[in-house]
Amino acid sequence: DWREIAKLAEEALKKQQPVTVNGQTFNDPNEIKKLLETAQKAI
């Protein structure tokens, strides 16, 4: 669910920690931002 992904990505950016989505881990803040943008577009 994109809403859940957006929430996870936002928290990861705030806490500056990696986030795992669908078994894929994102460590890079730039990648997390991209993930968040993608999720927000999909909602």
Rank of each mutant, 00 (worst) to 15 (best):
D1R: 08
D1W: 07
D1H: 09
D1G: 10
D1P: 03
W2K: 04
W2P: 08
W2G: 04
W2I: 06
W2F: 07
W2L: 07
W2D: 05
W2V: 06
R3T: 15
R3A: 14
R3C: 15
R3H: 15
R3Y: 15
R3Q: 15
R3I: 15
R3G: 15
R3V: 15
E4W: 03
E4D: 12
I5E: 02
I5F: 01
I5C: 03
I5T: 05
I5S: 02
I5N: 02
I5Y: 00
A6T: 08
A6L: 13
A6I: 12
A6H: 08
A6F: 06
A6N: 00
K7F: 12
K7H: 12
K7W: 09
K7V: 10
L8F: 05
L8H: 06
L8C: 08
L8I: 12
L8Q: 09
L8D: 06
A9P: 00
A9N: 01
A9K: 00
A9M: 11
A9E: 01
A9W: 05
A9F: 10
E10T: 09
E10N: 06
E11N: 09
E11G: 06
E11Q: 09
E11Y: 00
E11D: 14
E11T: 07
E11P: 00
E11R: 05
A12E: 03
A12I: 01
A12V: 00
A12H: 03
A12N: 03
A12D: 02
A12M: 04
A12Q: 03
L13A: 04
L13Q: 05
L13V: 05
L13N: 03
L13R: 03
L13E: 02
L13C: 04
K14D: 11
K14I: 14
K14W: 02
K14A: 15
K15N: 15
K15T: 14
K15I: 10
K15A: 12
K15S: 15
K15P: 02
K15W: 06
Q16Y: 10
Q16K: 12
Q16D: 12
Q16T: 08
Q16L: 09
Q16V: 11
Q16W: 08
Q17C: 05
Q17L: 13
Q17S: 14
Q17P: 06
Q17E: 11
Q17D: 07
Q17M: 13
Q17F: 13
P18D: 08
P18Y: 03
P18C: 09
P18V: 08
P18M: 08
P18I: 08
P18T: 10
V19W: 00
V19E: 01
V19R: 00
V19I: 14
V19T: 04
V19S: 02
V19N: 01
T20A: 07
T20E: 09
T20Q: 10
T20Y: 11
T20D: 06
T20P: 02
V21S: 03
V21G: 02
V21N: 02
V21L: 10
V21Q: 02
V21T: 06
N22K: 09
N22W: 05
N22S: 09
N22T: 04
N22C: 12
N22Q: 10
G23N: 08
G23H: 07
G23L: 04
G23T: 04
G23R: 03
G23C: 06
Q24T: 12
Q24V: 15
Q24M: 15
Q24I: 15
Q24W: 02
T25L: 12
T25E: 10
T25D: 09
T25G: 05
F26M: 12
F26K: 04
F26P: 03
F26C: 07
F26L: 13
F26G: 03
F26I: 15
F26T: 07
N27Y: 15
N27W: 15
N27M: 11
D28I: 00
D28K: 01
D28Q: 02
D28M: 00
P29V: 12
P29W: 10
P29L: 14
P29E: 11
P29S: 09
P29T: 11
P29Q: 11
P29M: 14
N30C: 13
N30H: 15
N30A: 15
N30T: 14
N30E: 15
N30L: 15
N30M: 12
E31C: 08
E31I: 11
E31D: 15
E31R: 02
E31N: 05
E31G: 05
E31T: 09
E31S: 09
I32F: 00
I32T: 03
I32M: 03
I32G: 01
K33I: 15
K33T: 11
K33P: 01
K33C: 09
K33Q: 14
K33D: 05
K33F: 06
K34T: 13
K34L: 13
K34Q: 15
K34E: 13
K34G: 07
K34P: 01
K34M: 11
K34V: 13
K34A: 12
K34N: 12
L35A: 04
L35C: 03
L35S: 01
L35G: 01
L35E: 01
L35Y: 00
L35I: 11
L35Q: 02
L36C: 03
L36I: 10
L36G: 03
L36Y: 07
L36S: 03
L36N: 02
L36V: 06
E37G: 04
E37V: 05
E37D: 14
E37R: 03
T38N: 12
T38W: 07
T38E: 14
T38P: 03
T38R: 14
T38M: 14
T38G: 08
T38I: 15
T38V: 14
A39Q: 03
A39C: 06
A39Y: 01
A39L: 07
A39F: 03
A39W: 00
A39T: 05
A39N: 02
A39K: 02
Q40D: 07
Q40R: 15
Q40E: 11
Q40T: 13
Q40S: 11
K41L: 08
K41H: 13
K41R: 13
K41W: 00
K41E: 11
A42R: 13
A42E: 12
A42I: 12
A42P: 04
A42D: 05
A42N: 13
I43M: 06
I43Y: 00
I43C: 06
I43V: 11
I43F: 00
I43W: 00
